[in-house]
Design a protein around this nucleic acid. Structure first.
Length: 629
RNA sequence: GCCGGAGUAGCUCAGCUGGUCAGAGCAACGGUUUUGUAAACCGUAGGCCGUCGGUUCGAAUCCGACCUCCGGCUCCA
């Protein structure tokens, strides 16, 4: 057999050769340092036979940044973790332990609960394993043998995994520890030069909260101590971007115990909020949305009609007095449907696009709140488009365009997900074929890449969600486009078609920012608090050098009053006031003293760059920087 | 809701093997200084040590419950 090497040369090998054989044929050092084989984008264990005629690439311990090489390293590290836990805590059952982005974890069922201090002990045990050295043996067995092995060991979770496994069953053994595993793995533990256990958490077996909760131990591993140090440093840097921290430092908002999950917006945070609101209002107008406002509180009967009483009551804040039970709205759709249904509608009015930055309240499960990105007081830039079947695709395209335009303004990176019919759903299969097809077709017509999220749609229809990642790598759902063929029918709203008959409209739920709170949280992290001029709460700060310059500084501020300008004439040195402006991340600082005039203003931008500009030049520059789009 | 942590001045944190343990820096306030591109100097004030209960002669410190926050799981915009 022969394989193709990355430099395009061919390598002749005996039939049935493995990746390790290939590496050895090239050189003994390569064989020693090899961690896995990559072929056509697929990774493969070194111990497995190669396919004839295929290109291969041997990854080694020197590929320290390669995600595949790191995955293998961390996967093997997870097995060391499991071995250590089993030795230290007899009777512990092991579940699964995959590599993940930035590390790995392993899930266990401990006989007794463990605390965080256990991590040190376990880490020490892994260090001991590393000093001793471990090597991995791969073995393929029948499902029956695998089940026998694991049931003898009392490893119920592994037995269950064998039952649901597809394809070959393979085992990896290191030392006295054998695990069910598809691989690939390292040859031995030498490449694991740095390892750290990073956390402890509860996690449900197979991700289902109805199952038993296991204890998950998180860790990470690298090919060198320097890489681990660099990773920890990056984490620390990311923490500095955390919007919760910056929200306090920049005096944008605060959260208080008296109203969990409901932000108090401070003046500076409110500036950003209003810039976004203005932007949204302008775009809604431009794109043919009509703004409405609907009540916060609705009688229970409305929620029964909408289905929220049945499906969403757990997440609703309820109010009751002697007279009646009401609920604070968790969504705007019922209100908008009531506006649509308030009088007879004609097909000539469609598509009817109603928009509202509505205040919603959602009583989230304790333990899920998170700064601005997960709140109980949610402000959605919500709109509902009532349209005919034929209009759906065009409207979805319009929503996609809206989202891409908005996120483009901020230079945000995001990804689309298409969620399709869930098991628990309303409507016929034909209906779902049509609605899913319409969303897919709109995505494809715009040439957008998207991930398919099968079975994750709403009970009333499929949806396209826009997802983003925060500074610590957590993924958040932002905007959403949901196609709904059920809600209008539940409310019995109709329009009169050209055939003079009544028809039920389709409804598209669309939010572009998603929630203003979450969006601002993400924005703070995206800019690390250093907002561009058009978003910055304070755009320009003027610092008079001495007492004599105060009046001139105020005059200058007046000439720049189309911008958000402040004069800092506090009794501090110039150096201190500059520092304060830098710490507050104000984009423009103007120092005004004896040397300055309207023809020559000392300009300092955030970060320290200095220049001299005339008032006209400065105004032109600021106008450009503060305009949206 | 579940698992593991944590809650001490406005902020960041020390004190937490029970007994001068109510502490520091920054911020605030007062005074001196009038400043030229990231921190002038001196002083003052500020805390029911998250809340409630228990153990003890004595609790910020030990125990319990609750609240909130942090890291995850689940759920979600």
């Amino acid at each position: 057999m022969r394989v193709l090497l990355p430099d395009s040369t061919e390598l002749e090998l005996p039939d049935g050769s493995t990746g390790l054989d290939a590496a050895a044929a090239i050189g003994p050092n390569l064989a020693k340092d090899a961690v896995l084989v990559r072929s056509n984008g697929r990774v493969q264990d070194l111990r497995l036979p190669l396919e004839d005629g295929q290109p291969i690439q041997i990854l080694t311990t020197r590929d320290t940044d390669d995600p595949d090489a790191l995955y293998v390293l961390r996967h093997s590290a997870a097995h060391l973790l499991a071995e250590a836990v089993r030795r230290l805590y007899p009777g512990t059952k092991i579940a699964i332990g995959p590599p993940i982005e930035n590390g790995f974890y392993y899930d266990f069922e401990f006989p007794e609960p463990i605390g965080e201090d256990a991590l040190e002990r376990i880490e020490a045990e892994i260090e001991r394993e590393l000093e001793e050295g471990r090597s991995w043996e791969r073995e393929e067995v029948s499902a029956e043998d695998a089940k026998r092995l694991f049931s003898e060991q009392g490893e119920d979770y592994k037995v269950e995994l064998v039952d649901t496994a597809e394809g070959e069953i393979s085992l990896y053994t290191q030392g006295e520890f054998t695990d069910l595993c598809r691989g690939p793995h390292l040859q031995d533990s030498k490449p694991i030069k740095a390892l750290k256990l990073t956390g402890l958490a509860g996690a449900y077996w197979r991700g289902d909260e109805k199952n038993t909760q296991l204890t998950r131990i998180y860790g990470t591993a690298f090919f060198s101590q320097a890489d681990l140090d660099a990773y920890l440093e990056r984490l620390e840097e990311a923490r500095k971007r955390d919007h919760r921290r910056l929200g306090t430092e920049l005096d944008l908002f605060h959260l208080g115990e008296v109203s969990p999950g409901a932000p108090f917006w401070h003046p500076k945070g409110m500036v950003i909020w209003n810039v976004l609101e203005d932007l949204r209002r302008r775009e809604d107008l431009r794109r043919g949305y009509a703004e409405v406002k609907t009540p916060l509180i609705f009688d229970k009967s409305l929620w029964e009609t909408s289905g929220h009483w049945e499906k969403f009551r757990e997440n609703m804040f309820l109010i009751s007095d002697d007279e009646r039970v009401s609920g604070l709205k968790p969504m705007n759709c019922p209100g908008h449907i009531l506006i649509f249904g308030n009088r007879l509608r004609s097909y000539r009015e469609l598509p009817l696009r109603l928009a509202e930055a509505g205040t919603l309240h959602r009583n989230e499960l304790a333990g899920t709140l998170h700064g601005l990105t997960r709140v109980t007081h949610v402000t959605q830039d919500d709109s509902h488009i009532f349209c005919t079947r034929d209009q759906i695709e065009e409207e979805v395209l319009g929503c996609l365009d809206y989202s891409e335009y908005l996120y483009g303004l901020f230079g945000l990176e995001f990804r689309f997900e298409l969620s399709t019919r869930p098991e628990n759903r309303l409507g016929t299969d034909e209906e779902w074929d049509f609605t899913e097809g319409a969303l897919r077709s709109a995505l494809e017509r715009r040439g957008l890449e998207y991930e398919l999220n099968e079975g994750d749609g709403a009970f009333y229809g499929p949806k396209i969600d826009l997802h983003m990642t925060d500074s610590l790598g957590r993924s958040w759902q932002m905007g959403t486009i949901q196609l709904d063929s059920q809600m209008p029918a539940r409310f019995g709203v109709t329009y009169v078609g050209p055939d003079n008959h009544e028809h039920t409209p389709y409804m598209i739920h669309r939010a572009s920012f998603g929630s203003l709170e979450r969006f601002i949280g993400i924005l703070i992290e995206h800019y690390a608090g250093a907002f561009p001029v058009w978003l910055a709460p304070v755009q320009v700060r003027i610092i008079p050098v001495g007492l004599d310059h105060r009046d001139a500084a105020r005059e200058l501020a007046e000439k720049l009053d189309e911008f958000r300008v402040e004069v800092d004439d506090s009794d501090e040195t110039v150096g201190k006031r500059i520092r304060n402006a830098e710490v507050e991340k104000i984009p423009y600082v103007l120092v005004w003293g004896d040397k300055e005039s309207e023809d020559s203003i000392a300009v300092r931008t955030h970060g320290g760059e200095q220049s001299t500009k005339s008032l006209d030049e400065l105004q032109a520059e600021l106008r450009k920087a503060s305009s949206v789009s």
